[in-house]
Design a binder for these strands. Structure first.
Lengths: 176, 176
DNA sequence: ACGGGCATGTAAGCGGTTACATGATTCG
DNA sequence: CGAATCATGTAACCGCTTACATGCCCGT
């Protein structure tokens, strides 16, 4: 169900085509909630049938621009304020950590170093986004403030993961 | 595919029944990789056909105890050392943060406080696990060391999330 | 005797991915 | 003119959840 609300959330900012929504999922939301384009087109058609979105107009190349309806806005607000929160933090990368004892030390060392590099890159990326928003590059709307908060979670989570992987490397070296 | 490797990982420690594996997923691995019992039984039967696991013996109540085969161990090691890492950190809770601007301030305040309480509880839980392991309550095997590392990721991630939610509360109050 | 936990499964259906398919437009 | 990008979809398949179904064993 989260995909639906993700789409409604994006449409609550401004009308958009399925293609544009797909891009935004790939570039922005996809980090915490991936969605492929067939899934998005299917969901939009379904939501159209339920009256949560409407086609505002059609453009070149068969483009369909969707708007959120009052019913859609109500559904989004209901979910945000009163929908039960699923706290699962699904991560394949962390699943692996339960089985580090099954790797030979050299492979584990290599793995942890690659993870540290990856996490560090993510931290740097989100810090750049955060700084851009703090400078006001993207305006000072309530929407930008939301994105600023979301980006902050990225900075903090990936910093924590990077430090964790470094700690894990040290832990192995003087206890294993 | 991750479920399969999760099962192989658990079986690499010691033989277990589908029921026991299911319990372990619910209690331990489920935080980062949830799996329901029908999914686990289906996967085990599939892996049996592929020769990755074997039935060691059957016990009371139709119990089937599975062992990992050499082919299964090889598949697990291959995945751990050379399988491409999927870095997606899927989180419904974080998806919501992108749309905080769509909530009314009182609902958002309540939501953030509930999230802070939830994250704080998780931090406390994992710190207790970590302390138990550091005291040696679960022995000092390589396996325990792996679990200690996994638990540490929980402590750090949920600490980061808790501090993030607190920061978000303050951010809203003096910028919104 | 019976209730709860042990133990394994099947079936229907939804969520999600990958591959396939098509065509318009823009840019070099 | 050709390649990349815009733009929308269908179909097959797999992963996963929920509900249903069955029966044994243990403790009270």
């Amino acid at each position: 169900m989260s995909l639906r609300y993700g789409l409604l959330g994006l449409l609550s900012e401004k009308p958009a085509s399925g293609y544009a929504l797909s891009q935004q999922f790939q570039d922005v939301l996809g980090v915490v909630w991936p969605a492929s384009h067939p899934q998005i087109y299917t969901a939009l058609n379904h939501m159209l049938g339920e009256g949560l979105v409407e086609i505002q107009h059609t453009g070149a190349r068969g483009k369909k621009v969707y708007t959120i309806t009052p019913a859609g806005t109500a559904a989004l607000r209901q979910w945000l304020a009163h929908g039960p929160v699923d706290h699962t933090l699904r991560s394949e990368s962390l699943l692996r950590s339960f089985f580090f004892d099954q790797m030979d030390p050299a492979d584990l060392e290599r793995h942890l170093e690659a993870e540290i590099a990856f996490f560090a890159e993510r931290v740097a990326l989100y810090k750049r986004y955060a700084e851009a928003k703090d400078r006001g590059d993207h305006g000072r709307s309530a929407r930008t403030a939301s994105l600023r908060i979301a980006v902050e979670s990225g900075v903090r989570l990936y910093t924590a993961l990077q430090e964790w992987a470094q700690w894990a490397k040290r832990y192995r070296n003087h206890s294993g």
